Simulated scan of single mutants.
Amino acid sequence: MVGTEQAHSGSPKSKLSRIYGIASFAVLCSIVAFISYMVYEGSANGTAELCGNAFGQLIVWSIILFFFRKKLDVNQRLAIACLATSAYILFDKRQDIQVAFDTKEARGVMANAKGVDPVQLSSQHPNNRLLRAIADANKASLASQERLQALDTGAEPSTLGEDFGSDAPRSKLIVYRDAARTAASNSRSARAAIDGIFREEADRLRTQLREYMPNGMVSSTLEGQRKRHLRDSLLLQRYWDARIEFYDVIEKRVAHLVDNFGQYTTEKSGKITYAANEAAARHNALLKEQAAAIEKIESAQNAVTQAQMYYKEGWERLTSGGGG
């Protein structure tokens, strides 16, 4: 009996099944290494997760094939388990692998695409998912910027662009005061609309990306967008807070002129002289508040402009081989 088993274990069929087992295990290891390099770029966390998935699949297939032990020896079961696990991993990571190839291609394309916008690059390489994702994100961002710009230009009534002069009739002062009040109200509405605009942009981009990107890439892209939205939202809120403060001060200042109409004189230089010292002090205090509000607007506007330039320069670095 012992001699029979030894002879069986050394038979050509047994040796062949052993070769199959070792070869299939080598194939599995090669696929894991390939995906680790291409998809996770050697990341320890990504590779560990991939190896964990592969090991789990091997265990599952080993349990299933254990019930076929009478028909299959251990090497044959190992070969089948390794090949099945390899097929599963390749199928499960098929989108990630494609994105990895697209990423490699996109890096090469963007390194020599200075002066070309994302939409043009995507149209030139329609099958590249990464370039398509960048183009979709860019279009969604531009749509939001147009809406934000519309809020900016629509907040201030045209009346505030006119020089009313402190010697204007009382009726005109009232119109100007009301226009400042309307501008402040519009600015508060614009400030409140910022988060909603960014939220709609994120929802639109999420829907687009899910059509052709794996979930992991969708999440990472949206996370980058979320961080940008957070930065931009804080900057824009600061900007609109300054605008609101400015219009509130304008309303108070013109209302002060309306309330004291006929009790002050205006010199040719524009200087206003009040009959009452208390009214003059109030007027001077409002002028200081107005000057401070203007400084806040200019500071906030500069911060917004710098952020926009940073994003633009970031794309220029990407498309000139300078990195992100």
Rank of each mutant, 00 (worst) to 15 (best):
G154Y: 07
L230S: 13
S17Q: 09
M213E: 05
Y88I: 02
D117N: 15
M110K: 10
P169L: 11
S185F: 11
A143R: 02
C29D: 14
S269N: 15
I64D: 11
N138C: 10
R69A: 15
A303S: 13
S299E: 12
K296R: 12
L235D: 00
Q301T: 03
A33N: 05
V74N: 12
M213L: 12
S158G: 10
A168K: 02
V39S: 03
T159M: 12
G10L: 12
F67I: 03
N53I: 09
A7E: 11
Q208M: 08
G10P: 03
R231C: 03
P12T: 07
A202W: 05
I174G: 04
R69W: 02
M309C: 08
E313N: 15
F68W: 07
G321A: 10
F55V: 00
Y264L: 08
D96C: 12
S233T: 04
A155S: 07
K296G: 05
A7Q: 11
F261H: 08
C51Q: 10
H229R: 00
L173Y: 01
A150G: 07
K227F: 05
I80W: 07
A23W: 01
P12F: 10
T221F: 06
T47P: 08
E162W: 03
I194N: 07
G56N: 06
F91V: 08
L318Q: 12
G154P: 03
R204W: 06
F25V: 03
E5W: 12
S36A: 15
G262M: 11
T47E: 07
V2W: 10
T319W: 02
S36I: 04
E41M: 07
S11A: 13
H125M: 08
S171V: 04
A135C: 02
A87G: 15
S9L: 13
L58F: 04
S43N: 13
A281G: 15
A192T: 05
D178H: 10
V32T: 10
A48H: 01
G21H: 03
Y247R: 02
C29Q: 13
L72R: 06
R282M: 15
A255L: 10
A33T: 00
H229N: 08
I297A: 03
L151C: 14
E223F: 05
I22Y: 08
D241C: 06
D117M: 15
G154T: 06
A106N: 08
F66R: 05
A307E: 06
K139H: 08
Y310P: 05
G161V: 04
Y311R: 11
K296C: 02
A150Y: 01
R191M: 01
E316W: 07
S17R: 06
P214I: 00
E267P: 01
L148N: 08
R94S: 15
I22N: 00
V99Q: 00
A133H: 04
R226T: 11
L72F: 09
E295R: 15
